[in-house]
Amino acid sequence: MKTNTHFAFFDEGSKKEIRRAIMKAVAIPGYQVPFASREMPIARGWGTGGLQITLSIIGKSDVLKVIDQGADESVNAVSIKKLVHETTGVELTEQTNKASVIQSRHRIPEVALTEDQIIVLQVPMPEPLRKVEASEYMTKRMHAEDDYSGVWLMLFEQIMKYGKTATSADHPVYVNGRYVMAPSPIPRFDNSKLHQSEALILLGAGREKKIYAVPPYTNVESLAFEDYPFSVEVFEGKHCHLCGSTDVFLDELIDPETGETIHQCNDTSYCIEQLNKKAEAEVQTSYA
């Protein structure tokens, strides 16, 4: 038997509870608001936090884009898109600038987001202090007391061990000068996109039952020391082997035939857009 699901899967009571949590999250930027994370038809840790936010805010006129580590066509992204589409009937897109709601795992798109967009990030570990303190009560107290020595110490130890901060992804940030926040495992390359963003950024951790947010035009500063400034991944001298882009986040791949190291845009829709632009330009010049 196939049951008819309610619009956007959730009952209205669940939506209200999540909507209230989002409101508080927006009002207290970077603070993790607890919420009653629901059992979802996908496994915890597969984007249930993001999915619950998406389902609670989405309406009939929205256009949804879902990305998983930069890709529109990966299994996780496709499953989430299917679930939302089947329960709401909203239009789906792969083009960043056409979407009104973007759910993303571990990337912020290369194309700059606008005021009319909301980006929902999936978060596995929302607590930046968890590595230094196992107790939830203690970490909540540390946030209350503005005591972030633990997270600074963590970065300091990385510098002692490796000569640099070795966070690779999920590099902690200060939001509005008050809360230290885990920006979800986005590469450091994307951290600057959180600062004074035009779009509203919502973050959801389903397993850990937390929702938090970065409102637009909010200061977001990556944690760094004066003598060890924050640095992002560099791709100097490298370019995408498909579209040739240079100033984007690149994946390092090995060509299975030649065994050579090649680089490719991580944001697949951006890459396709560049290729289409090139193809269009070629057609115009060859038939001109």
Binding site: F7, A8, K15, R19, I22, M23, I57, L200
Partner: peptide
């Protein structure tokens, strides 16, 4: 409409709360 009208209201209020 308890589903769609309130969703639209919510998004408007959310837009204003974030701006």
């Amino acid at each position: 409409d308890q589903v769609h009208d309130l969703q639209q209201v919510y998004r408007k209020v959310l837009h204003s709360m974030s701006r």
